[in-house]
């Protein structure tokens, strides 16, 4: 048996992932719209389940969005700069007797992505967030 083994099976790990074509998936669009609606209703931040239940209640989704789909979409939106998140103060959660929440809010880049038919790239979104686009 040859001691020289091809590393080809491992190469898929090193190849950078091909980015999906820019554009929002329906679930991502729904999340951003829900976040903006919630802010309009006086809740500037939302957690994952709140977004899912709101989408169900408003009829945007027939049932509660599955957990994997929901949190993958939130992760992707955050990486693109369309959402920002922070962890809730543990003391607040402790007072309410529940686990602490991860709270999201829609960024200006997210609003722009929703209103614009052409979605900016992740780098463009970051520039927008840092104010680089205005200069």
């Amino acid at each position: 048996m040859s001691p020289f083994v091809s590393c080809a099976p491992l190469m898929w790990l090193t190849v950078p992932m091909r980015g999906r074509k820019p554009g929002l998936l329906p679930i991502e669009r729904s999340i951003l719209e829900t976040g903006i609606e919630l802010r309009r209703d006086g809740a500037p931040e939302f957690h994952g389940f709140l977004a899912a239940s709101r989408m169900r209640d408003t009829g945007e989704a027939r049932m509660l969005t599955s957990r994997g789909t929901l949190y993958k979409a939130l992760d992707r939106l955050e990486r693109q700069g369309f959402l920002a998140s922070r962890w809730e103060d543990p003391d607040v959660a402790l007072l309410d007797g529940r686990p602490r929440r991860r709270l999201y809010h829609v960024t200006p880049a997210g609003e722009l992505a929703l209103s614009s038919p052409r979605v900016p790239s992740a780098a463009g979104a970051r520039r927008l967030q840092s104010g680089g686009a205005s200069s």
Partner: peptide, 13 residues
């Protein structure tokens, strides 16, 4: 159903 339907997305994530 939320866990089961989300499994492919979990793997993709």
């Amino acid at each position: 159903y939320r866990v089961i339907l989300g499994m492919p997305a979990d793997v993709a994530w």
